[in-house]
Nucleic acid binder design. Structure first.
Lengths: 205, 205
DNA sequence: GCTGTTGTTGGACGACTGTACAATATGGGC
DNA sequence: GCCCATATTGTACAGTCGTCCAACAACAGC
């Protein structure tokens, strides 16, 4: 009966950081910025103690930046399902519409973090860097889909237009989930792109 | 020398409420939700005392709702420049692009408030109500511009698509002002609408 | 000049915030 | 079984938060 039951489990730093980021995103999802609190985050991370965030990230704000980066990484991962840089436009749309990356909670977390971008220069730089990748990837997919034809507007302009619309749809779907269904969002994506590119929809539609 | 200099000025309730809403929007604009604080708001309202918000609105949250309503009222006002219900599409676009309604500060305030909509059911209802008006107004303008022609997609769908894109553009312009200029936003608006409606741009372009 | 209504003040209050830090426990290497 | 690097704990701290409320002052009406 000398078996020792540890008071807590010790994690490797990267693993613990991931847990905290996860907990942070969860808190942002259900309480917005106001819910992003040391106490709540630690509780959401399985009851960790309050000192952990400072220890692993230096400050709460830096944890927020890590959350933003993680959210973007996931979305970019979704935008390249096969892991390849080259992804067809329809594959990208379907992946971005999947529940994993655009769940109600994820969208709320995005919205909460966006509200902080303007107040944190570092976060804005982070945003700019990621947005570039995102835009580039969409441009590439559009270029592939246009197949050499000349479009009514440039591929860059169409990509910006498309990304903006998707963001706006997600935004509205986040503000009022009952108005826009996931199917509505998909429909809008194809409506917009086909107005410039011609039919691109998969056959079963 | 018995002249009495008042310690403070007394305002009619509606006027004071307006001052506080104004101050609230200003605080949201430069500090996000975190900047929306009793102390800061009162200071921004010309140094009013802390008890005023509770007195006039009941709680800080209700002041936020009033701020949201005011922001939307202004935007809807911009979407109908002449005060009439009927407004041409181009008039609407130009009005919505004017500096008064889409200044950097205004956009930041919107973004901050959006982050709170999901956490406040009353705010969500407010949003829904206003969005309906906005959508209706855009549908009407599109219907007028389409002039009886059959479009590739329904007028409702095009309106949703247009509004989403505008929101997304504003969002990105708010997150990174250097990426998107006001002119870029205008260009995107016309690019999208003309893809479905044909040329609608004013002659001097 | 007085009175009454009501807009305004400003401090008290308890709860909660993020961070710093010294003490402690864990689990791998030997 | 011991040692040690380090992940973790939990409290102390100074500050800020939103709300309440009793006293006060402005100003219109008389």
């Amino acid at each position: 009966m000398t078996a020792h039951t540890p008071k807590y489990r010790r994690y490797e730093a990267p693993e613990r950081r991931e847990m905290l980021v996860e907990a942070g995103l969860a808190c942002l999802a259900d309480g917005g910025v106001s819910g992003f609190t040391i106490d709540r985050i630690c509780e959401a991370a399985g009851g960790a103690s309050r000192g952990l965030i400072t220890h692993h990230f230096g400050s709460k704000q830096q944890l927020l930046r890590a959350c933003y980066a993680t959210a973007y990484d996931r979305m970019l991962g979704a935008a390249a399902p096969g892991g390849s840089a080259q992804t067809s436009l329809t594959e990208m749309i379907e992946a971005l519409l999947s529940d994993d990356y655009t769940s109600q909670g994820t969208l709320r977390a995005w919205l909460a973090m966006w509200g902080e971008v303007a107040n944190d220069p570092d976060l804005m730089l982070e945003h700019r860097r990621y947005y570039d990748h995102y835009l580039q990837r969409v441009v590439q997919a559009i270029r592939e889909a246009s197949d050499g034809r000349t479009l009514a507007i440039s591929e860059d302009a169409l990509a910006t237009l498309f990304i903006s619309m998707v963001d706006g749809l997600w935004l509205e779907r986040c503000l009022d989930p009952e108005r826009l269904s996931r199917a509505d969002v998909r429909q809008a994506c194809y409506d917009l792109l086909e107005a410039f590119l011609g039919p691109i929809r998969p056959q079963n539609d």
